[in-house]
Amino acid sequence: MIYTMTLNPALDYIVKIDDFRLGEVNRSTDEVIFSGGKGLNVSMVLNNLGIPSVALGFVAGFTGEEIERGMQAQGCRTDFIHLDEGVSRINLKLRTGVETEINGGGPLVSEFAVSELFAKLDKLQEGDILVISGSVPDSLPHNIYERIMARLQPKQVNIVVDAGRDLLLSAVMYQPFLVKPNQQELSQIFRTPLHTKDEVAVHALQLQEMGGRNILVSMAGEGAVLLTEEGRILSSRPPEGEVVNSVGAGDSMVAGFLAGWLENGDVQHAFRMGLAAGSAAAFSMGLPTKEDVNILKLYFKGAKNMKEFQYTIQDSAGIHARPAGQLVQLAGGVESSVTITKGDKSADAKRIFSVMGLAAKQGEVITVRVEGADEANAAADIEAFLKENL
């Protein structure tokens, strides 16, 4: 069973105003209100895709009742803890040509309510999936994610973490099944701007070394990058379409990934499902339906299965003349294109001066990308060569 946990759910009130004027009375041209929060979004998209889940979290007051009613009206199963004081928050999403968000604070969560949540989590079993996502109310301890993951670690629950920098870093050491930052969040984690997919892949590897098993990084209009538990790097641009609403796109990507992974355990299929679901959310005012996702899945039909992997140079002399020449000879004998990247430098592996120009030293990480008719065998041969010679 999949469980989603939203510690600070909300009613999302999305208002579109074509000609917004600050300080004046404005009339909306379109508006919608629905139950919101990252975990709730995952549950709703999973439900749209035919995958059952249970939504956990805290709700309070009349807004909390409406959140629960809205989820159940969508066909989602809930198991919320009802707080005695306060009200669940309302988040305003203002669409005026640019997106502006005003988010409420949320109710006070007592230690007793936390113990009730832990009692529900204690019922999870091996093989269950728990999606932990979103912000934490100020009344909860800052290490709540860490406490939850430490508690569940002996149960071998597959945990997905989608949260901001500090919350994610406190949880990643417990080896979650999937970590899903976006490009900006990954930049914040490592305190450095990340512009290219190669830069994202290098830092995804660092996040994996900290404990995350599969690292899925969404990159808005550039698509996404997935670093798998086995060390494969998958990347793709998204399907083409007009972006009308980014709210819920990352959550939809998580739901799509899980739905795809549950179908056959293939991470490449899961990656494409995630990208299709995330794009479908961005192309509509609400969360995507199964039909929306299935239409965008056609984008990937017949797509090449590009092979990509990373390798850390072991040779004390780095990439020097003799193995570089052998590598160029090997790459020249395959039909596929072979590109080697180090940082912001890229080299054609079939050209000796291009490879030598990387000046890759011991301990540095290179990314090898192989694309073409014989890419699977070519990538395996090149990876074996690197392990034996560099």
Rank of each mutant, 00 (worst) to 15 (best):
P181V: 12
L275V: 15
G223N: 04
I189Q: 07
P239Q: 07
V172K: 01
S187C: 09
E240P: 00
H269L: 13
V225W: 00
V157M: 06
E146D: 15
V160I: 15
G223H: 02
G221K: 15
N264G: 10
V161L: 08
L275R: 00
R272C: 12
N245S: 10
R151G: 08
V172M: 04
L167F: 03
N214A: 09
L169D: 00
M253K: 02
M173T: 15
V254W: 05
K180V: 12
L186W: 02
Q184R: 12
V267N: 07
E242M: 07
V202I: 15
L227W: 00
V247K: 03
D251H: 02
L275W: 01
Q183K: 15
L168F: 05
L186D: 01
S187Y: 02
V160P: 03
S187V: 06
A171G: 09
L275A: 06
S187D: 10
R147E: 14
M219D: 04
G256Q: 02
Y145T: 03
H195V: 12
V179F: 05
L226Q: 01
S235R: 05
L207G: 03
L152Q: 04
G265R: 14
R237M: 06
A224P: 05
E222G: 01
L186C: 10
G221A: 09
Y174C: 08
V247Q: 06
M149Y: 13
G265A: 14
L258K: 01
A259W: 00
A259C: 04
T192W: 10
V225D: 00
M149K: 07
R151S: 11
L262V: 14
P239Y: 00
A163F: 08
R151W: 04
L207A: 08
S236V: 05
G231F: 04
Q206L: 15
E230Y: 06
N214Y: 03
Q184W: 08
R232I: 01
Q156E: 15
V179L: 08
E222S: 15
G260Y: 04
R151Q: 13
G265K: 14
M219S: 06
S218F: 07
